[in-house]
Write a protein that binds this DNA or RNA. Structure first.
Length: 865
RNA sequence: GGGCGGUUAGCUCAGCUGGUAGAGCGUCUGCUUUACACGCAGAAUGUCGGGGGUUCGAGUCCCUCACCGCCCACCA
């Protein structure tokens, strides 16, 4: 074996082996249970980024459950991401001076198909490099024929249940995409703007002042609203005002949506272009006037000067006109949020348009209940409240988009005007038999189709074997930004179609930020390519980083050094394995451990393994991977390699008798540790596991280790701690006296090796009197070191220097501690009110501190001992 | 406007039901000891964002302020 672990070839080789052997496909369950995760489908346009690397958490879970013996299925796939993809393709066309309108629908569809065919698999191929054990044979795409059928089925069932309606309502209109978008796809950006105060003349004399950030919409005003409790305006309610410029009379109405304290307390109402105003208009029966074309330009034929202008120009022009009419009172600087399109960043223009809607109240109700009843659990738990808040305040969902890409709405209208939803293209109208049918031109919101993901990927609406076997799923892991867009919607979809939740545990993993704390983004140049990390440090190291930070629930700054530390960890495992199998004939079978020949160090090690096994299993069950990897790192590196392997080295080299036990214990612990680590670091563990004696074809299906509480021995643990303390003290003294000391016997360089046989045969009791002063050069002085109950006699060549001073400082600190504890124990409030166990512990601490002080005294001034 | 999260060693982060602060990286010292220098053995480093309070005792509970980040809202 090489002295270094090289992830590259190992990863490639094992991944190919696993995939070829169909290891990622579900096997028969040994537990009677299944374990299913639907992978959040990445956008087909996207490149792999750190967000996807976080899916490592899902792989950890599925790999763990495979080892537990469950039938495991992790379903991968991709989403067509209608708006995003359309933007990409439109950009391509515009580069060539063309557009989708120019090439026409047919050519466009071909272009889309070609795009899907060529880019579809890239991101999934990249995921393989991270070792993801998803069942690629079940890969799904939201535009697959089967999936389209599921989308249509969902739509038709909603339709039949009366949950879908079409109607004109105010929507968020993106003038660039020329499509409606849902509330969730509007991002609000704080903008420095201006607030305009306009004076509208009131019928019978006087004016009423209104404040607005959008003066250009005044040409669409159909009312002025005041709060009914506002004494200032009470007498004006019911009167008419005359709009400037268009010279159209509109009524003053009372509506309590108006805040008395804001602006002037009077609001111009533009039901056609403002969500709030639309609602006021509905309540007050105000006329809805449209003043915009679908591309966002002014549609105001009665004012030739304005018609066809873009909004900013129209605003300037209207302000001039208002000023000329004396209707502009003042302008104030104003900061407020302006809605932008999530995808193309254009300013959203609310307008009234006929769209398809899903009635949300009946769907939300059960979705609220499952979270309240804790059937649906969130990790971290606080996301439950966020989910509930959204679900409780939900509004109807606008599911139609005026795009050229996506699932067409399966509604056909005949010449007699009968609109009906069909699963497939109908030949004649259900209602009148008319055979001239036209399909609705709109497509569905991407999230309508993706919210069917967990069951549509398993074959729904057909009752397939997969659906029966693997649905509902268990865990859904994703980033928080699609909690409402996707997670919440999957919940109510599943409750509607299955009367069951789609998954029982939702993990919201932290978002990876750039090292400087900014958002990771390609445009900012702050993105980190996970594949570059895989190239540099290996997939295992990259995964370990994700697992470490992923489930803390906190956003995390990217730290390459931490990934690197896991690369070194993999290397450590590699070398520890080299040592353990150095004297083992190739092809050896597992060696059973003979309990009768176990020595204290062996029992200590096995006990520690049991404790770590328990800790890791419990942490995994709580989805807390950070503490799990931490414990495994500490255990494998420091306890197993640094302590145990050093202790048994002499035995390993001896070759027989106790050597065999040491060998078999070391192998046993190593093998179990590899299994515990496998879900997080699959490659290096498989490679090493295959090189040591093992049972089975792959570590992927090796049984998950069970903790053996019988082996955990607190007394032994305390004794080992004591031993290691003795070792440390001896080293310190040596270091104090002469940092450069190196002499025969070499054992002082490696006191653990020196102590090993005492730990073994004579047990720790021999430590009571430990003489390390033999074999020293002439002129050595002798020191006696007391550590707890152990006396160590050391022979050392010269007196100490700087280190003795350090020990002096340590002694002073100890004396301070003693004083502090003393004070505490002298306080009757403490001894009277604190629990007895705590007081007892303080007493013990005091004793220990005194002993330590004594020891330090000896070291600082050898003559005093 | 409302809500949530964060503020702990130089950096990145852990710290469960309150009992005198931990890890990794970095820094410093020594060591090429035949598993590993991608290593080993040691060391140093924190008024736990500020201020109050509860308590025998607070990083941990309560109040309050500040800053950073996120989410929600009919911010005319």
């Amino acid at each position: 074996m090489e002295t270094r672990y090289d992830p590259k070839t190992v990863e490639q080789r094992w991944y190919a082996t696993w995939e070829k052997a169909a290891y990622f496909e579900p096997r028969a369950s040994l537990t009677g249970k299944t374990f299913t995760i639907s992978m959040p489908p990445p956008n087909i346009t996207g490149d792999l980024h750190m967000g996807h690397a976080m899916y490592t958490l899902q792989d950890v879970l599925v790999r763990w459950h495979r080892m537990l013996g469950d039938a495991v299925l992790w379903v991968p796939g991709t989403d067509h991401a209608a708006i995003a993809t359309q933007n990409v393709l439109e950009k391509q066309l515009s580069k060539k001076g063309s557009s989708k309108e120019t090439i026409g629908r047919e050519a466009w569809d071909r272009m889309v198909q070609q795009w899907y065919d060529t880019t579809g698999q890239t991101i999934l191929t990249q995921m393989r490099r991270l070792g993801f054990s998803a069942d690629w044979s079940r890969n799904r795409f939201t535009m697959d024929t089967d999936y389209v059928a599921a989308v249509n089925a969902a739509f038709v069932r909603f339709w039949k249940a009366g949950l879908i309606y079409r109607g004109p309502r105010i929507v968020n209109w993106c003038p660039r995409d020329r499509s409606a978008i849902s509330d969730l796809e509007v991002v609000f950006v704080e903008t420095d703007d201006q607030l305009y105060y306009l004076d509208y003349p009131v019928e019978g004399g006087g004016v009423i002042s209104v404040a607005t950030a959008r003066p250009e919409t005044m040409v669409g005003d159909t009312g002025v609203a005041v709060n009914s409790k506002d004494a200032r305006y009470r007498d004006l309610v019911g009167k008419m005002v005359m709009l400037p410029i268009v010279h159209r009379p509109v009524p003053i109405v009372a509506d309590d949506a108006v805040e008395i304290g804001f602006g002037t307390g009077a609001v111009k109402v533009t039901p056609g272009h403002d969500t709030t105003d639309y609602e006021i208009g509905e309540r007050q029966k105000l006329e809805v006037r449209n003043i915009l074309h679908l591309d966002g330009r002014m549609n105001i034929p009665e004012v030739a000067d304005l018609d066809g202008l873009k909004v900013p120009q129209a605003r300037t022009r209207i302000v001039e006109m208002l000023r000329a009419e004396g209707a502009l009172q003042k302008i104030e600087p104003y900061r407020h949020s302006v809605g932008h399109c999530d995808r193309c960043n254009a300013v959203i223009e609310p307008l009234v348009s006929s769209q398809w809607w899903v009635r949300m109240k009946p769907l939300a109700e059960p979705a609220i209940r499952v979270a309240e009843d804790d059937m649906l659990r969130f990790h971290p738990e606080r996301w439950r409240e966020q989910y509930l808040r959204w679900m409780r305040n939900i509004r109807d969902w606008c599911i139609s988009r005026q795009l050229w890409l996506g699932h067409r709405i399966p509604v056909w209208t005949c010449t007699n005007g009968h609109a009906v939803a069909y699963l497939t293209q109908p030949t004649d109208c259900d209602q009148c038999g008319d055979s001239t049918l036209t399909q609705d031109p709109d497509v569905l919101d991407t999230w309508f189709s993706s919210s069917l993901w967990p069951f549509a990927t398993l074959g729904w609406p057909d009752s397939t074997e997969d659906l029966r076997r693997f649905y509902p799923t268990q865990v859904l892991d994703t980033a928080r930004d699609i909690l409402y867009l996707w997670v919440a919607r999957m919940v109510f979809m599943s409750l509607h179609f299955f009367n069951d939740i789609p998954f029982s545990d939702v993990i919201i993993h932290g978002t990876v930020m750039a090292p400087d704390g900014r958002r990771m983004s390609k445009s900012l140049g702050t993105g980190v390519d996970p594949l570059v990390m895989v190239d540099r440090y290996g997939a295992d190291a990259t995964r370990a980083w994700c697992a470490y930070f992923g489930t803390s629930g906190q956003d995390i700054r990217f730290s390459e050094e931490k990934i690197k530390s896991y690369q070194l960890f993999a290397n450590k495992l590699w070398n520890a394995t080299r040592l353990v199998i150095a004297r083992l004939p190739e092809g050896s079978l597992p060696i059973p451990i003979d309990a009768a020949t176990l020595e204290p160090a062996d029992r200590w090690m096995l006990g520690r393994l049991g404790a770590v096994t328990r800790l890791v299993s419990e942490a995994f069950a709580r989805f807390e991977f950070g503490p799990a990897i931490d414990a495994l790192y500490e255990f494998a590196w420091h306890e197993f390699a640094d302590d145990y392997l050093e202790l048994i080295k002499p035995r390993l080299q001896a070759g027989s008798g106790p050597a065999e036990t040491a060998q078999s214990v070391a192998l046993h612990v190593l093998e179990a540790t590899l299994r515990l680590l496998h879900p997080i670091m699959p490659f290096v563990t498989e490679e090493l596991w295959q090189r040591i004696p093992h049972d089975g074809e792959s570590i992927m299906f090796a049984p998950w280790p069970l903790p053996d509480a019988r082996l955990e021995d607190p007394v032994l643990l305390a004794e080992m701690d004591h031993l290691l303390e003795v070792v440390r003290a001896v080293r310190n003294v040596r270091h104090a006296v002469d940092p450069k000391v190196r002499r025969q016997p070499a054992d002082l360089q490696s006191p653990r090796a020196l102590l090993a046989d005492r730990v073994g045969r004579e047990y720790l009791a021999t430590l009571a009197q430990l003489d390390l002063s033999t074999g020293l050069p002439a002129g050595a002085t002798t020191r006696v070191v007391v550590i707890g109950q152990t006396t160590v006699t050391l022979g050392l060549p010269s007196e100490g220097g700087a280190e003795t001073q350090r020990l002096g400082a340590e002694l002073r600190k100890k004396l301070e501690d003693i004083e502090l504890i003393q004070m505490k124990l002298n306080n009757p409030d403490f001894t009277g009110k604190a629990p007895a166990a705590i007081v007892e512990r303080e007493r013990r601490r005091l004793d220990e501190a005194r002993q330590a002080a004594e020891r330090l005294q000896t070291l600082v001034d050898p003559r005093s001992g």
